[in-house]
Design a protein around this nucleic acid. Structure first.
Length: 137
DNA sequence: GCCAACGTTGGC
DNA sequence: GCCAACGTTGGC
């Protein structure tokens, strides 16, 4: 099983919306690196849901429910998408400022390459972040 | 709302 | 195939 982190601006699509929808198609990625990560996802892979721009925190865990398929909103037909569903919310959202302060997490892609919207998370990082978020990953 | 960082595009 | 120009992301 692999671990990932996906970003969304709450004003365009929030964690609460995902919970309400039960699942969502993660379309709109227009970046090759992010798209390659989507392609590498397998059903059942776990995903941190991160609120960018507002919130700036990891707020919950989602799961890949459908693997990579073409994104119908992409007219160039170069990019794809996956489906995800909510698993559980964090008891305590983990803020970016706290991630940056944590020596175990300061090398995360989230910190190093803040503009990548779909990124891998190491098992060590996953475990640690779950602890800080008050959940069992 | 600003702007730095970065990815993509397109002219040469 | 290089690189300048441009657009977008996202933290502050």
């Amino acid at each position: 099983m692999n671990y990932w982190l996906m970003k969304s601006e709450p004003s365009s699509y929030s964690w609460d919306q995902l919970v309400k929808d039960k699942k969502t198609g993660w379309n709109g990625v227009r970046n090759f690196q992010a798209s390659a990560n989507l392609k590498a996802m397998k059903t059942g892979d776990r995903v941190f849901f991160y609120h960018s721009n507002e919130g700036l925190a990891v707020v919950g865990i989602a799961e890949v429910s459908k693997t990579y398929y073409p994104d119908p909103t992409d007219k160039t037909e170069r990019f794809g998408m996956v489906d995800i569903k909510p698993v559980m919310p964090f008891k305590t959202p983990l803020a970016l400022v706290d991630i940056k302060k944590d020596p175990k997490l300061k090398d995360m892609v989230l910190v190093k390459n803040s503009r990548l919207s779909v990124q891998p998370v190491t098992p060590e990082e996953w475990k640690h972040i779950c602890q800080l978020g008050g959940v069992k990953g």
